[in-house]
C-alpha cells in the first residue's frame, strides 16, 4: 500500500479512473444509442455523438432558476460525478491493476449511492415542483431496489467465503452456483433501476415529468450529470462482471472480459427497448415482492450451501 500520492492522483485521473472510464462510458452511451436505433429500424447517431453532446453542453450558458438553492444546485452534480469516478477507480483498479489495490465491496456499494443521491439533491434543490417529484421518485426507487441489491451482495459475500475484498471476490465462484446465478439475475434487474433506464426510468420519465430532477439543469452542470450517467453505464456492468463473472481477466483473457461487458450492455439495452416504463408503485411492489423473494432464495441457498458444505448451491 505504499503508493505515493501522485500515483493515486494518476490512477484516479487517468487510467482506471476518470479519463479512461469516461472514454469507455461515452463509447457505451454510443453503443446504447446505436443499438437502440437499430432495434427501432433506424441508423443511429455517429460514433462521436456523445462527445459532441458534452462539448456543446459545456459551451452553453448556465441558468439558475430563482427558486433554487444556488450552492446545492451547482454542487450536487460534482458530488455525484466524484462518487462515480471513485467507484470507477475502485472497480478499475481491481480489474486492471490486480495487485496494486484492494477494494472493499461494501464501500463500493455505498459509493454507487452517490450518483443517485446527487440527482436527488440536485432535483430537490432546484425549487421546481416537477423536479421534486422526480427526486421523490428516485428516492423511492432506491428504497425499492436497495433490499434485493443488499441481499445479492450478501449472497456474493457468502459464496466468496466471507470476504469483502474485491480481489478475492473476483477470484470467487461468482455466478457459478445456483445462488450465485439467482443473485446475478437480481443484480441485473437492480442495475437496470440504478441506471434509471426503462422499465425503471420513472424518476426521469420525460413524457411524465419532463426529465424530472434534471428539468432545471442546463449547460455545464447538465454536462456533468450526463458525464456521470455515461460513467455509470461503464461502472455498473463492470460491477456485475466483478461480482459475478470473474472480472475482466488478464492479458488475452481481457478480450473475453470485454465481450462480457458488451454482452451485459446489450442485455441492458435490450431490456430497455422491449418494455414500457412501470409506475412507481408498481416498481416498488415488484422489487419488494418478486425480486426480494428471488434474492432471499439466493441468500438462503448460499447460507445452506455454506452450512452443509454444498458448493453448487
Amino acid at each position: 500500500m505504499a503508493t505515493d500520492w501522485y500515483m493515486y492522483l494518476l490512477y484516479f485521473l487517468i487510467f482506471p479512473g476518470f479519463i479512461f472510464s469516461l472514454l469507455v462510458g461515452l463509447l457505451a452511451v454510443w453503443i446504447d444509442r446505436k443499438v437502440t436505433a437499430r432495434i427501432q429500424w433506424r441508423v443511429g447517431p455517429p460514433l462521436l455523438q456523445p462527445v459532441y453532446d458534452l462539448v456543446k453542453l459545456i459551451g452553453k450558458e448556465v441558468l439558475l432558476p430563482v427558486g433554487a438553492q444556488p450552492l446545492v444546485f451547482l454542487f450536487a452534480p460534482l458530488v455525484g460525478l466524484a462518487g462515480a469516478v471513485l467507484a470507477a477507480f475502485l472497480l478499475g483498479s481491481v480489474n486492471f491493476l490486480q495487485s496494486s489495490f484492494v477494494g472493499d465491496l461494501i464501500v463500493l456499494v455505498y459509493l454507487l449511492f452517490l450518483p443517485s443521491l446527487a440527482i436527488i439533491i440536485g432535483g430537490s434543490a432546484s425549487g421546481n415542483p416537477i423536479s421534486a417529484i422526480g427526486s421523490s421518485r428516485e428516492m423511492k426507487l432506491i428504497l425499492a431496489y436497495e433490499l434485493p441489491l443488499a441481499l445479492a451482495v450478501i449472497t456474493v459475500i457468502i459464496n466468496a467465503g466471507f470476504t469483502l475484498n474485491l480481489n478475492n471476490i473476483v477470484a470467487g465462484p461468482g455466478a457459478a452456483s445456483v445462488s450465485g446465478f439467482l443473485a446475478l439475475l437480481v443484480t441485473l434487474i437492480c442495475v437496470q433501476a440504478k441506471l434509471a433506464v426503462v422499465p425503471f426510468d420513472i424518476p426521469e420519465a420525460e413524457t411524465e415529468i419532463m426529465e424530472g430532477p434534471l428539468v432545471e439543469y442546463s449547460g455545464l452542470p447538465l454536462a456533468i450529470f450526463k458525464t456521470m450517467e455515461a460513467l455509470l453505464l461503464y461502472i455498473l456492468p463492470l460491477y456485475v462482471i466483478t461480482l459475478f463473472l470473474g472480472g475482466l481477466g488478464e492479458g488475452w483473457w481481457m478480450l473475453l472480459g470485454v465481450l462480457k461487458y458488451v454482452l451485459l450492455l446489450v442485455i441492458i439495452i435490450l431490456i430497455k427497448n422491449t418494455n414500457p416504463r412501470l409506475r412507481i408503485d408498481q416498481a416498488v411492489n415488484f422489487f419488494w415482492t418478486k425480486v426480494t423473494a428471488l434474492a432471499l432464495i439466493a441468500a438462503g441457498l448460499a447460507a445452506l450451501g455454506e452450512i452443509y458444505g454444498v458448493s453448487w448451491l
Binding site: 450558458e61 448556465v62 441558468l63 432558476p65 430563482v66 427558486g67 460534482l78 425549487g127
Partner: peptide, 23 residues
C-alpha cells in the same frame, strides 16, 4: 473532484453572473 468542478465553473461561467430565470 469538487475543486476541479469549482475550477470548471469558474472557467466557464463566472459564478456570480449566472443568468437567473423563473422556474
Amino acid at each position: 473532484a469538487v475543486v476541479a468542478g469549482i475550477f470548471l465553473y469558474w472557467l466557464f461561467d463566472s459564478l456570480k453572473d449566472l443568468r437567473r430565470v423563473p422556474t
